[in-house]
C-alpha cells in the first residue's frame, strides 16, 4: 500500500502543481473582470440611454452563451476573422475576464443601488463630480455589501477555469487527465485534482471571511 502510494507520489505532486496555473488564470481574470465590471456598472447606472443599452447588451451576450464557446471563438475563431493568433494564456485571460466582467458588473450595479440615495444627493449638493463621487463616496460603501458576491465570482472562476485545459493549458484538470491517461487509473488522479480545487477554495473562503470581518468594523 505504502509502496503504491510512493510510486504515485510524483504524479500527485505533478497534479497539485497545476493549482498554481489554475490560480494564475482565476486571479488575473477576476482582477480584469473587476475593472471591466466597475466600468460597465457605472455605464448601467448612467443617465445616458445608449451607454446603459451597451452595458446591458454586453452582459446579456456574455451571460447568455457558454464560456466554452466564448473561449473557442476567441482562441480558434479570431485568427480566422482578424488574422491574429492569440496564445493559450492570452486567449484564456481575455475570455475569462470578459465573461467575469459581465457577472461582476451586475454585482456592482446592485451594490451601487444599495447605497442610500441621500449619499448621491449630498455629493451632488457639495459639487462633487460624478466620477469622483463613484470612486471615493459610492464604491467604498458598496464594497461591503458586494464582497461576498465577488468572492463567489472568484470561486466560480477557479472552477470554470478548468475549461482552459481544452486548449492545452496544463492546469489542475489537464494534469489529472494526463496522469489518468498514462496510468489507466481514472479515479485517484481525479480525486487529487478535486481535493486540490476544494482546498484552494476553502483557503479563499477563509481569507474572504477575515476580510469581511475587518471591513465591517
Amino acid at each position: 500500500m505504502f509502496e503504491q502510494f510512493m510510486a504515485f507520489l510524483p504524479s500527485i505532486l505533478f497534479i497539485v502543481k497545476g493549482s498554481i496555473v489554475t490560480l494564475k488564470y482565476s486571479i488575473i481574470s477576476v482582477c480584469f473582470g473587476l475593472i471591466i465590471g466597475v466600468f460597465l456598472a457605472i455605464l448601467k447606472v448612467s443617465k445616458i440611454f445608449m451607454l446603459r443599452l451597451f452595458a446591458d447588451f454586453y452582459t446579456s451576450i456574455f451571460r447568455g452563451t457558454p464560456l466554452l464557446i466564448q473561449l473557442s471563438i476567441i482562441y480558434f475563431g479570431l485568427p480566422i476573422v482578424i488574422g491574429v493568433k492569440l496564445g493559450v494564456f492570452s486567449a484564456g485571460i481575455i475570455a475569462f475576464s470578459l465573461n467575469s466582467g459581465a457577472y461582476v458588473s451586475e454585482i456592482i450595479r446592485a451594490g451601487i443601488n444599495s447605497v442610500d440615495k441621500g449619499q448621491f444627493e449630498a455629493a451632488k449638493a457639495l459639487g462633487i463630480p460624478e466620477a469622483l463621487m463613484m470612486k471615493d463616496i459610492i464604491l467604498p460603501q458598496a464594497i461591503r455589501t458586494i464582497l461576498p458576491s465577488l468572492v463567489n465570482e472568484l470561486i466560480n472562476l477557479i472552477k470554470e477555469s478548468a475549461i482552459i485545459s481544452m486548449i492545452g493549458e496544463m492546469d489542475l484538470t489537464k494534469r489529472a487527465q494526463l496522469v489518468s491517461a498514462e496510468t489507466f487509473n481514472f479515479f485517484a488522479p481525479m480525486l487529487v485534482a478535486a481535493a486540490s480545487y476544494y482546498i484552494l477554495i476553502l483557503i479563499i473562503s477563509k481569507l474572504a471571511k477575515l476580510l469581511e470581518k475587518r471591513l465591517s468594523k
Partner: peptide
C-alpha cells in the same frame, strides 16, 4: 444644503 438624514459620508 443640509438634509433630514444628515447624509454624512459614513466611511
Amino acid at each position: 444644503m443640509v438634509f433630514q438624514n444628515f447624509n454624512l459620508f459614513p466611511h
